[in-house]
Design a protein around this nucleic acid. Structure first.
Lengths: 352, 352
DNA sequence: TGGTAAATGTGAAACATTTCAGATAACGAG
DNA sequence: CTCGTTATCTGAAATGTTTCACATTTACCA
């Protein structure tokens, strides 16, 4: 008895029908007389057959694989996104091939090119910081949805969080609590996210009439180590900032560590607001006030958009911007106002 | 000009060779005269062709995909494992299809069966708590490596951490610091991991002559919420345990929260040791003492074993057990000994 | 120069599907 | 009974590879 894999032919033979009929039963594309359908299904069960996804993908010039390209699954923001995507995609019988780029645009290009050879039904991409993938994508003419960040003047589908507004809220929070010497540790300013978060920060500062010293704006990677270094710079300056907006929670974590090492207390000496609201935010010492970003939802929405585009390629593009929300905890304290806010509106000189 | 995809034939035609030669050039399997090789490579570049992975997989009855089945990428222990695996696999031109099971053996079976239709080169599996996948695997006769946990009497390759020893160390740590009323929040005792960690705990207790009240052994899931509930139970008992061994860091995190809610101080009122040494351990309030598990290494090792087995299916199985290591931080304090250790060895009555 | 062995090149067949043009069966109407 | 129509089935062709038996070329030597 030869150790051969089963094929449509075997099912056809056993059910005494043609291979075409088997295919029709499997795909439900064409009407099949009930009697035959039952015979086929029975044969499938008896032989324990399941269709070969590779052959199908080859023939149809499109598999049910989805290429998902992300910077680094190890960065705690991304797993939720991936999970959200998978939860939606699996309902539609799609599977995810996952690739990490480490924010290297070379790896990103390589991954994309590699994945194409599987004729995936589409792509979900969280682009690297200075991604040069956009030309390749538009030329490729297959469904792609960008998540979290998208290339400059990308015209297709995308899902992101409202970074500008989130940062604005975060900064405002510090200002309202009386902080005047504000600092920001930005992400890479080559990335749209980095810029947007900086811009929200600046808007809040400007609105409050605060001038930010240029040394108080430090650029970092979105990593803990990089945040740690930037924070060390920041807290060595005198007078020190009393409030730091960290452009993501990893940076905030690095900042927390730098503070601790320097013997400074958070929030009394330096208050911190983060961004992302990662799980650990409510465990840190002190609990980290952070801007919540709906990572899981972002994954879900992106997957839904992708599915829609797979169904119908020429539909209008959607660029979703999901709301963020400040989660206040104990890493920010209220401080006595050093010099009053230069009041633009009426000066509400409330007696303490 | 028809919008057709390129195939070996196109390359062959342009390079004026046969398709067989093109294949030989691509795979380097047979010697090809340098002159022809150059012509072929040139043709490939000019046309921008890359082989179709589906067709190849179909023909060879094996793709370069690896099915990776894990409980939940959202659980911070797993991303590192996945990443470790990918880093090794990508060197060998393998790609990962990722599936989450949520610890449901049904989903696990479904995922496995689904993935098979892609003729993957092999599988990397972190089985669900009560996985029933083993029979299907052994019958399937393709490379599989289990990670972190493996089915009872699994005879193939596997990679895990030394759970028993790690827990033993963790517990010993508490005991040495003077804790006598010890409690454990176990993982699910249907899982090998849960049992092994319990068993290390028990060994340390027995060795120290400690009797553990049965209420002081609470079973939980490996999640924060579940840990939180178990911890609430535990700290409502009087006299309270002074030291809790949490079977993983998520449980420890839940415990930390329960403690905080109950107005109890950690470590003074209750000390905690976790397991996994997740990134957040050095950020928590207080910093969490935890048993480090080499997650990234586990992924790497598993991938290496898988590669070896793909190369040579009938090689002896390897069951790797990687060492764990206690990382002491501030969630454990030394307490005055309430009643002395019933000394089994010589009573070293050191003053103080 | 002719002959042989070694090196290299060739292309039909196979892999497991889907598709689709044409075959067949069933049925009513005339 | 025949014809036309509808409903259903059929199987060859096509998808893009690799393989391998065979053909062709090259290299070498007498």
């Amino acid at each position: 008895m030869a150790e051969r894999r089963l094929s449509t032919h075997d099912i056809a033979k056993r059910a005494k029908v043609s291979i075409g009929t088997v295919s029709n039963v499997v795909n439900g594309s064409t009407k099949v007389r009930e009697e035959l359908r039952v015979r086929v299904v029975q044969a499938m069960d008896e032989l324990g057959w399941q269709p070969n996804a590779l052959a199908r993908g080859l023939r149809m010039a499109s598999s049910n694989l989805i290429g998902m390209i992300i910077p680094d699954i190890t960065n705690p923001f991304f797993p939720s996104v991936v999970r959200g995507a998978e939860d939606v995609l699996s309902l539609h019988f799609h599977r995810i091939i996952l690739c990490n780029t480490d924010n290297s645009s070379t790896k990103e290009l390589g991954a994309f090119s590699d994945l194409r050879s599987f004729n995936p039904a589409g792509f979900l991409i969280i682009p690297s910081v200075d991604s040069g993938i956009e030309p390749m994508i538009t030329q490729y003419k297959k469904p792609v949805v960008f998540i979290d960040r998208s290339p400059a003047n990308w015209k297709g589908d995308s899902v992101k969080a409202n970074n500008e507004e989130g940062s604005y809220q975060a900064t405002k929070h510090l200002i309202v609590r009386g902080h005047r010497r504000l600092a920001i540790i930005t992400g890479p300013l080559r990335s749209s996210i980095g810029c947007e978060r900086l811009s929200g920060f600046q808007r809040a500062c400007k609105e409050a009439g605060l001038q930010i010293k240029s040394e108080f704006q430090q650029e970092a990677q979105f990593t803990r180590d990089s945040g740690y270094l930037a924070a060390r710079n920041l807290i060595s300056m005198l007078p020190r900032p009393t409030g730091i907006f960290a452009s993501n929670d990893l940076i905030a974590a690095g900042t927390l560590i730098a503070l601790r090492e320097a013997g400074l207390r958070c929030p009394q000496d330096v208050s911190i607001v983060g961004f992302d609201n990662l799980d650990f935010a409510e465990l840190t010492d002190p609990n980290l006030t952070s801007v919540h970003q709906p990572a899981y939802q972002m994954g879900k929405c992106a997957a839904r958009l992708l599915i829609e585009r797979i169904k119908q390629f020429d539909r209008p593009a959607e660029q979703l911007v999901l709301p963020t929300e400040l989660r206040t905890r104990s890493s920010v304290c209220t401080i006595a106002v050093e010099r009053p806010l230069p009041s633009r509106k009426k000066a509400a000189a409330q007696p303490r």
